[in-house]
Nucleic acid binder design. Sequence first.
RNA 1: UCCCCGGUAGCUCAAUUGGCAGAGCGGGUGGCUGUUAACCACUAGGUUCGAGGUUCGAGUCCUCGCCGGGGAGCCA
Length: 458
Amino acid sequence: METVRDALRVGGTGRRTTVCGWVRTFRSGKNVAFASINDGSCHDSLQAVFELGLFDPGDFEGLCTGACVRLTGVLTDSQGREQDRELRAEELELLGPSDSDYPLQKKKHSNEFLRTVPHLRTRSATFTAVFRMRHHLATAIHDFFRDRGFFYVHPPLITSSDCEGAGETFQVTTLPLSSVPLRESGEVDYASDFFRRKAYMTVSAQLEAEPLALALGRVYTFGPTFRADHSDTRLHAAEFWMIEPEMAFFDLEDDMKLMEDCVRFIASRLEELCHAEIAFLSETVEPALASRYDAMLRKKFSRITYSGAMELLGSAQDGFERKVTWGDDLGTEHERYLCETAFDGPVFVTDYPATLKPFYHRLSDDGRTVACADLLAPQVGEIIGGSQREERLEVLAGRMAGAGIDPETYRWYLELRRWGTAPHSGFGLGFERMLMYLSGMSNIRDVLPFPRTYGSMV
RNA sequence: UCCCCGGUAGCUCAAUUGGCAGAGCGGGUGGCUGUUAACCACUAGGUUCGAGGUUCGAGUCCUCGCCGGGGAGCCA
C-alpha cells in the first residue's frame, strides 16, 4: 500500500499498487467510471478509472462522495488533461460506504456551515490544506529554534500565577461546585482544594520560561494557552497555541532580529513545502496570499516607534473613529492603518509607554517607555509581542509596587534578579494568528481543528 | 459585555409595496459520454429558526428568545 502522494509522485507509471482514501467525486458512464480519491497525504487526488466490464454494477453501491475505499490497480499515464497519471483499478474494496446524506457534497460550502461539522470538515480540500500547513508550520518552528541552539522547554499548563495583564484565566479546581467550602470570613477555603491554593490554566508561559532561560541560555516553549476573555471575534480563541522564546543576554535589538528571522524562516519553509496548498488557498480563499509571502520573504520588515506612530497617526487622524494622543493604546483601526496603509506589510511598533505594558518590560532610559516590540500584520493584527525584560531588581520592584502587585506573589520572580541577574529578552508568537496569515484563512476557528471560543465548543 | 447584519429545500441563495414558496447544486428516474464540482431531460423535496403580536392576508412589519456572522473593547 502507498499514499496518494507517493502514487502520484514517486517512481514511474506501469507499476501495480494499492491505495486507500476517501472519494471526493464519482462519475459513471456506460463503459467507464471515474472516482477522485484523496487520502489527505497531499492536496491532489488520484483519479481512479474503472472499466465497468471488470466489475459488477453492485460493486459501486455506496461508492459516492464521502465513501472510503481500498483500490488496487496499475498506475498509468492519464488520457485526461487535468492529471498526469491515474490508477486503472482492478480491485475495489468499499471500506466505508457513503450516501446522499453525507454533509460534504461536491460543491463549495461556507466555512460557517463546515464549522457545524468539525469532525467531517477535516476531509474537505480547504481543511486538509490548512492542517497540513499547520503541521509544517509547527515543525518549521521547532527546526528554526533547534538550529539556533535553543532548548525546547515545558513550563506547566496549570499555574498559580495569572500573569498580570495577559488576560482572564480559567480557574482549575476539584472543589465541589454545589457546596464550595467556605472559611469563617465567607471566602472560599482553598486549603481543601487540590493544590491547597488557587490554581489557573496558564495564560502565558513567559514568567516560567525565564528561570529556564537564565540557566539554559536560549529556550522556547510551544504549547497551548487558555484565556477566558469574553472576546468573540474572528481573531480570538479560548484555547490556542503560543511559541514563547526566552533568551539570556539578548537585548531588544537581538530580540527583534530573532523575530524577523523566525517569521522569514517559517514563511520560506511553508512556501517550499506547501506549493499546492498555497496555490489552492490563493484561488479559493485569499487572492492576496502570494503577495503576503513576498512581503515576508523579500522585504525587510518596517519599524516605527510608538511615538513615531503617534505622529504618523496624528497627521492622518481625520479618518479615525477614535483620535489618539501619546499615552493612549492603539486601537484596531490604528494598527490596521499602520500595517495595511502606511507600511503595507508586517511592521514592528516599538517602545510603548510603560503605562500600557506589563511590569516586567524593561524601563528605558527616558523613564517613560519600555523596550518592547509588537509585530503587526495586515488582516490578522498582532502576531508577535515581545520585550526586553526588566533585569534590575530595584526597578522591577518599583514597577510592581506602582502596579499594586503584592511582591510576595512574585517573590521567586524577583529572586531571579537578586542572584545572578542577566539582561534577557523574549517574545510570544501566536501560532494560529501566524497560520491565519500564512494560509489566508480569516477566522481563527478555521485554523483550529476543534475551536474553543467564548460561548461555543462544538 | 456593547453595536450592526443575517436565519427560506440536504447545501448555496432568490422572492418587487405585506398578496400563489422559487432556482442552482445535491437526491431519484431515464439518456449520453475518457470523465474532471461532467452533461441533457424528467421528478421528488418546505413547521420560511422558535414563541407571541399587528393585519382580510406575514418569508416580508412589531416584541421577546435562540443560533450564526461581522465589528468594538481586550489580547496572541
